[in-house]
Write a protein that binds this DNA or RNA. Structure first.
Lengths: 155, 155
DNA sequence: CTGTATCCCGTATGATACTG
DNA sequence: CAGTATCATACGGGATACAG
């Protein structure tokens, strides 16, 4: 983001209407420009993970302890009313979480192999934040459902 | 989720290893079973929105004030270093946020028409939570990037 | 047991053109 | 200005089979 282009935009916006906090928007823009808001940006990556089909659930389950691959899969499949997680997706999501330093693998090199997964300190911290966010959404659930009904009724 | 199946699972898991907090996992399972973890579950929907390409950015920008469609688009396009948002996506995301009661449309029926968008109180609350989450991720950014480098180096 | 490798589909996202 | 319609594409996610 070229800052002069942004300055010009701000000037233009303020000329037409001042219904926003220019200072806060500018600071927000600087924050985003700092890492470019790219695909590899950790902020987008992590938010994207939290929003995908399984990662948030995985973090929640792992926040209660350590699980082997098969145990984790059984737990997820039993808990999730909608669908079972495929072996493929479980591995993919765990790898992604591991790459970001949120999950650790403990490998016992035996036959048959034994691998168990648990949260790193960073993973624990994130899972706590996640739990708070989920809790807030749950509290607002009725308001949201109400809003949806209203919206669908009119439309 | 049939609770007897879950009980059986817990018993089985504890027989093999007790490296997890059975009580917390059970309560977590109950929470999830309460709304089924379905596609229409507000928790998954909202988390999914926050993780998509534009909604989080939209909420952040709108948290600084009220914007008309075109102004919003210019701001987003200028801020986002990666790509411009298409008119179509802007409308789709705004509609989704509006349906969930997070965004309001103020319409002035004139020629040419004027429509401006702003957060509802619920949207303001969510955007604050979001900002906190983003802030935490930013603080952990270096740890995450470090972990990724380590992971990629070994793999 | 813990994964990988393929194939396939649905949805999110994008580009472009058109309209009240 | 603020959309809608249409077509094209990329990616997440699932089913299945195979491997160390």
């Amino acid at each position: 983001m070229p800052s002069d282009a942004f300055d010009a935009l701000m000037t233009s916006l303020q000329r037409h209407h001042g219904a926003f906090d220019c200072e806060r928007l500018t600071s927000l823009a600087k924050d985003i420009a700092a890492n470019g808001h790219q695909r590899e940006d950790p902020v987008r990556e992590i938010m994207s993970r939290l929003g995908d089909r399984w990662s948030a659930l995985l973090l929640s389950v792992l926040s209660t302890g350590s699980f082997r691959h098969s145990a984790l899969r059984r737990v997820i499949c039993t808990i999730s009313a909608e669908k079972a997680i495929s072996q493929r997706m479980l591995t993919l999501r765990l790898r992604a979480l591991e790459r970001d330093g949120l999950v650790m693998r403990d490998i016992t090199d035996s036959v048959p192999p034994s691998v168990s997964y648990r949260l790193t300190p960073l993973g624990v911290a994130l899972s706590q934040r996640l739990a708070e966010m989920i809790c807030w959404i749950k509290e607002s659930e009725n308001t949201i459902i109400q809003a949806r009904r209203e919206f669908d009724r009119i439309a």
